[in-house]
Design a protein around this nucleic acid. Structure first.
Lengths: 216, 216
DNA sequence: ACAATCAATTAGGTATACCTAATAAAAAAA
DNA sequence: TTTTTTTATTAGGTATACCTAATTGATTGT
């Protein structure tokens, strides 16, 4: 049984990501996320289980310690790649996701170290998500969605949970990027928009959008 | 018929490299270089031919214009990757080949441009080999092996045709790297060693080794 | 010229990762 | 509770890229 490492990495990474919303990840959700058919995923999950990378129970799939470790390595490589792309190669934050998805599988442990060193051991990716350290230790700050803030509350953007380039461009155009301070001036009722003030300018922001911006 | 692009790139790159010594490349030579069995290569070559990437004659395989173009793109990405690794990530020249072999298949046209721009459009890889431009134009200088020089001749190293890390480390330790000036002090008869002078120091250099160092 | 050698292909078979269609099992709605 | 719907798996099948063993074809040596 020969392993197709990139494929395995892809699965582990997806499971890792989905676990954050839904603990044991369902086959269907995973299939949807990977854009594969449910039976394909069902089959592959069996293989991952036989390699002791996941536990497959009635309720769904979850990563074993080993699988979690591997997933975090991939996440680390993904986020380091993104930083390499923005900080050194001059990419914009909305252009890096897809590139990093390809790069992450071509990066050796040595290259991982070198990138981290050359970038001064960055703690987050360009979207503000933490980069796990070499041992898979990941420090996540306590955050809440911007959409939960009340009128007159002020906060600092920690990260932006969004991959769509168009949306990222839009957010960048408003200055809604990590480490920026935001003041909520007004919150419309019935799930209406927020009026926010970002570095001197005032904008109306939809709830949907605001819920993807995490602040502290 | 779905294409496994990295695999195809690997084949084209090998054919491209081997063509420089042996014009129509033989199946067996290709198989040896790719570390695959002859029948596997035979079969794959048929597929490449059906995609009009190679011409398959009795004497062997050669790249079509289309195949040549694709091969040069891969070579460009390989050599740009090597430069990225040395110039930005601090790798040594003996450490980059294998890494670049993985990276070259994960680089998009856009990333190719960005790397080139960030590095100031380098003309060669760390071993002195020319980097084809975007259109596949490759300017190769007229060179000859260091081993062909006569006593008292002086030359400048253009490139080093070698991939083995140990050998590259050795050459670097003697200062035998691109752009360095070398004076041949003496040439032993019957294929014996050359006595060369490199930046003030004198070394004995085997013929075999010297033949891999190209000078102008 | 003929046998020996070497190169290339054909034949037949493996593993991986995917698919659709059909079925079984579990959860939600009536 | 029974039906409907959703979710997961089995069954069966495809394509790709590899393999070994056997065969054909070309080259070389005597």
């Amino acid at each position: 049984m020969e392993a197709d490492t990139p494929r395995i990495e892809e699965y582990l990474e997806s499971i890792y990501k989905l676990q954050q919303e839904q603990h044991p990840v369902s086959t269907s959700r995973l299939a949807e996320h990977l854009k594969l058919s449910a039976p394909s995923v069902s089959e592959m999950v069996k293989k991952l289980a036989s390699k002791r990378l996941v536990n497959h129970t009635e309720k769904g799939v979850c990563l074993t310690d080993e699988g979690n470790k591997m997933a975090k390595i991939v996440v680390r490589r993904h986020r380091l790649s993104e930083r390499l792309l923005t900080d050194i190669l001059g990419y914009k934050w909305d252009e890096v996701h897809d590139e990093a998805c390809r790069l992450e599988h071509a990066i050796s442990p040595q290259m991982e170290d070198r990138i981290a060193l050359s970038l001064g051991n960055p703690k987050t990716c360009p979207h503000g998500h933490p980069i796990p350290d070499k041992n898979g230790v990941l420090l996540k700050e306590k955050v809440r969605p911007l959409s939960e803030l009340k009128a007159k509350q002020k906060a600092i953007i920690v990260n932006v949970f969004e991959e769509d380039p168009k949306m990222l461009q839009y957010l960048a155009s408003l200055g809604l990027i990590p480490d920026v301070s935001v003041l909520v001036e007004e919150v419309a009722p019935f799930g209406g928009p927020l009026i926010v003030c970002v570095s001197g300018s005032r904008y109306a922001l939809g709830r949907e959008v605001a819920s993807k911006i995490k602040v502290k």
